[in-house]
């Protein structure tokens, strides 16, 4: 539990420091075009990776959980229909929950 608190506080400190750095660091360091492009693309790569890993792995093994996959599928459908964020999340969770209640997992 202490380890988790350290991770929580370190994440908070790091995220805040990055925000503050943008306000204080001289313009030219962060104004480089490739640096900007990298910072734009980092969330795309990391969030795609996180989504994939949390959907089809458990620990260090690939694991295909039907309810989880269906939940993400529901999210994709909701996103394609331009549903609001919370609707996307609820659609995913409800789909997985209903399938599990029906004994599918």
């Amino acid at each position: 539990m202490t380890g988790t608190w350290i991770a929580v506080l370190a994440t908070a400190a790091g995220c805040y420091a990055l925000k503050l750095a943008g306000l204080t660091v001289p313009h030219r360091i962060l104004a480089n075009r490739r640096v900007r492009r990298f910072a734009e693309l980092v969330p795309v790569a990391l969030l795609a990776a996180l989504s994939a890993v949390q959907t089809v792995t458990t620990g260090q093994a690939l694991a295909f959980d039907a309810a989880r996959l269906a939940g993400l599928g529901a999210a994709v459908v909701a996103l394609a229909l331009r549903a609001p964020f919370l609707v996307v999340i609820v659609a995913a969770a409800v789909t997985a929950a209903v399938l599990r209640a029906a004994g599918i997992s």
Partner: peptide, 22 residues
């Protein structure tokens, strides 16, 4: 936890660029 923290902070790096613009 170290990897989790590093990933979370890396994700926050774009906020530095926003700070620059702001």
């Amino acid at each position: 936890l170290l990897a989790g923290t590093a990933g979370a902070i890396l994700l926050g790096s774009r906020n530095a660029l926003y700070g620059l613009r702001l």
